[in-house]
Design a protein around this nucleic acid. Structure first.
Lengths: 134, 134
DNA sequence: ACGAAATTAGAGTAAAATAGTCCTAATTAG
DNA sequence: CTAATTAGGACTATTTTACTCTAATTTCGT
């Protein structure tokens, strides 16, 4: 699978955050979405670190959007919560056992690169605005 | 990651099989490609079951293509060796813990479906011929 | 200033998927 | 017959995913 539950939970949360006027806390989001709250908290932290969300600590705190939906791409969200971009196949993570010895030089490298580019393009050009208002 | 090593190994093997005139055994393929032979054997078995390869048992046996490269899509190969198609996000595998209760009905379902379709189309329209002779 | 409500940070754990191994049986060319 | 080769199934190790828990820090409201 290209995406994990972190991306699923992130997108579901962003949908609610967009529609809310004031910041929403991780606990409330977890409750409304039926998502484990400790896990969701981690995900929201990452989105805040990536400046997709802005966090407000303390009483009446919570998370709100830090940019307009049209300025947040799916690529940014996924990269943020997955900790890396969504790879078709991450040769570099197998560098030590690459059958070909050197990554990026085998017979399937061109295919992988083209395919990856297609996916990156798609995700970079798809914004939160289009996702939920279309 | 969308693909696993099974797909990597399958494609690397198919490249060699295409270029060979006679059947090649799993052991020879494993040796030439520097791939674990027991694991590769399993992968080739799947490709044979899917009628992408044809297997010849016994001495001088091995695997050969069962169709022309232009009639074998990447979609078929990947589905065969991964045991299922390459999913963006497989909601059905999380059916019991879908936050929304019913799969395919949440706010991100349309996105997932569109994205999946894009990937399926790409892989269905890409053949082995294009992969290695272009 | 205090206390409750929140996020932040980091370590730790459980379950699942991936990436293999190994052994035995069945088949077939020579 | 026999050596070479695929087929099948059970098994194991490693890695990734999907979480949890605890403690620290910040900040609103009174």
């Amino acid at each position: 699978m290209l995406l994990t539950r972190a991306s699923e939970y992130a997108l579901l949360s962003l949908d609610l955050i967009i529609k809310s006027q004031k910041p929403i806390g991780s606990e409330q989001l977890a409750k409304e979405l039926h998502i484990p709250k400790s896990f969701l908290a981690k995900i929201l932290q990452n989105l805040a670190k990536s400046e997709i969300l802005i966090s407000h600590r303390g009483a009446q705190g919570g998370y709100a959007l830090n940019k307009e939906p049209k300025d947040i791409s799916l690529y940014d969200i996924i990269s943020s919560v997955e900790g890396k971009k969504a790879f078709v196949f991450d040769c570099s993570s197998y560098a030590s056992s690459c059958p070909n010895g050197a990554i990026g030089t085998c017979s399937i490298s061109p295919f992988l690169a083209k395919f990856q580019l297609k996916i990156d393009d798609y995700l970079k050009n798809l914004t939160l605005e289009e996702l939920f208002y279309e």
